[in-house]
């Protein structure tokens, strides 16, 4: 079957099987920042922002995402112009192996887009679906709170809209 998906601002038709999950389709199309983890909803590594909300792409059929904008980590910041969240993660050192980092950034971005001044408890709730096996949550929460408290002074990049990023 053919479905229309909008990924990082670009809309096009994808040929998929009914059983294909959104995770499988995105990875097949080269969005490798969407990680293939547990595939049952437990780890959050496959996170994407769908219609403004962070979701697991492994527990959803690709067809369910039709007509709703999808943002993957590839749609956030660039190597030369990091998103403020990415810059903060670098500055704080909120990374160990890095496997969960795309999911952390996406979960934080979905939260800040909706609520620019969250409390630490709200940040922790936003990360509740991301299972980091290395560094834990202290540094990522610190990095996100840094962005909350100093919006604008971090990194080179603008807060880029998915729509303006290829």
């Amino acid at each position: 079957m053919e479905i229309q998906l909008t990924v990082n601002g670009t809309s096009r038709a994808f040929v998929v099987e009914p059983a294909d999950t959104l995770l499988h389709v995105l990875r097949r199309e080269g969005f490798l920042g969407v990680k293939h983890g547990c595939e049952d909803g437990s780890c959050g590594m496959c996170a994407v922002i769908l219609d403004g909300r962070v979701v697991n792409s492994c527990t959803m059929l690709a067809a369910q995402a039709e007509g709703k904008p999808i943002t993957t980590i590839e749609g956030i910041g660039t190597r030369d112009a990091l998103h403020p969240l990415q810059a903060a993660f670098v500055e704080v050192g909120a990374v160990q192996c890095g496997y969960c980092t795309p999911a952390m950034i996406l979960a934080a971005k979905a939260l800040l887009d909706q609520n620019p001044h969250p409390t630490e408890a709200e940040v922790r709730d936003a990360l509740s679906g991301v299972l980091c096996r290395c560094t834990g949550y202290v540094k990522p929460v610190e990095a996100i709170m840094r962005v909350v408290n100093h919006r604008g002074d971090l990194g080179q990049g603008e807060v880029r809209d998915a729509a303006t990023v290829q």
Partner: peptide, 8 residues
């Protein structure tokens, strides 16, 4: 459920 699951 976690936020990611609650959203769907």
């Amino acid at each position: 459920a976690t936020r990611h699951i609650r959203n769907v």
